[in-house]
Design a protein around this nucleic acid. Structure first.
Lengths: 203, 203
DNA sequence: TTGCAACTGGGTCAATTGTCCCAGTCACGG
DNA sequence: CCGTGACTGGGACAATTGACCCAGTTGCAA
């Protein structure tokens, strides 16, 4: 194994862990499976991390920090120029998220498993809260831009609107992961966009 | 340990397993933890079940079969008599589900974990599909009754409407399990009811 | 009452898994 | 070029866990 700094090694192990969790599930992400995926020896693992739990905790932090908004603001702007309504923008955003989900279902499944893992112990619960707070933050930005571009105003604080949209996206995710029904997911996206767009008034 | 028939024993073990999974999570539901919860010896476990997996599979079947609709039809009728709109009925239904969630969050968390477990292997995936099909079935009944009582007609096949509502309920569940924000959950319930009620027309 | 099959308790086993250790080896600053 | 400390490979270990086994025991039918 080539030499690398402690930071690089931690990062490499974290990436390997994410791949294993995505592919085989959190329960199968043993220290041995992770080092095998990373092409290292067990000793390297415990040189970089105190314990498996420490790695999983770091993994959650990493994937959460890496979450990107599904809708880029300039894309929103382009659509708005063409006279799209707020509802149109939201639906396009939902469909874009769905596209992302279809491209890498295992990743979203892994995120869900990590959330449930975090929910299971009081000291890790904050990780789950941070994860969802991050989701809300990303959507707050997009929702504020969308309202701005379509000349509308949110009747509620934007973060409350975002919180609703996070719930809808999550529901879309789980149900689709179960039945893989694309048309049904599209209907969920449309209904969610519709409901949320009604939380704004024209300015 | 008192004597009991194989069927009773299987049932007792299944109940014990559900309690362990709810309280400590699926990962902690080892054969030993389950028999301890049931007050049996390990031998009894393997007398009643071939393997732990067989019990978990049965557990999924049992909890799914036991799912009851959150809204009783006669309750719907009473509300409709008082002039409630379809949207009102749906929102009341969502809030009632939420009440149920608040009363026993661990049970819903267990259901979610069982779904994810089923999703992780091809031969168990059908269990997850059956689980969600059951959710849809329960809602189909309620939605059909609600439309009937309010003199409206679903523009889409009822099961498609139900499928959307299942997604919304699931989203409400996960996000609330994470942040325990009652007000936010109520907003999700209202938005979901609103969106779904727009899928019907007056007759 | 008696025979027996259903059932149970307690122990055992192999496999898995998290963690650790130690003898080496390699990169790099002096 | 060399010493040293960072790093690695391979092995070891205890704990956990799913599965199993067997010698008993007990309820019940005849």
């Amino acid at each position: 194994m080539t030499r690398m700094s402690a930071a690089e090694r931690r990062a490499a192990l974290t990436e390997a862990a994410l791949r294993v969790v995505s592919r085989e599930g959190l329960a199968q992400a043993t220290t041995r499976a992770i080092v095998a995926e990373a092409g290292m020896s067990l000793a390297s693992f415990h040189y970089a991390f105190e314990s498996r739990d420490e790695l999983i905790d770091e993994l959650i932090g990493v994937v959460v920090a890496r979450e990107r908004k599904a809708i880029a603001v300039d894309e929103l702007a382009a659509a708005a120029e063409q006279g799209a309504s707020l509802g149109d923008l939201l639906e396009a955003g939902m469909l874009r998220y769905f596209e992302h989900l279809r491209e890498d279902p295992e990743h979203e499944q892994a995120m869900l498993e990590l959330t449930q893992y975090a929910l299971r112990s009081p000291e890790r619960h904050p990780l789950a809260i941070a994860q969802y707070a991050r989701y809300v933050d990303l959507l707050v930005e997009a929702l504020a831009a969308a309202a701005e571009l379509t000349g509308t105003t949110w009747r509620l604080p934007v973060d409350q609107v975002a919180r609703v949209l996070v719930a809808f996206s999550d529901g879309l995710t789980i149900t689709w992961l179960v039945d893989r029904d694309d048309a049904a997911a599209a209907r969920v996206a449309a209904a969610a966009a519709d409901a949320v767009s009604r939380m704004a008034d024209p300015r």
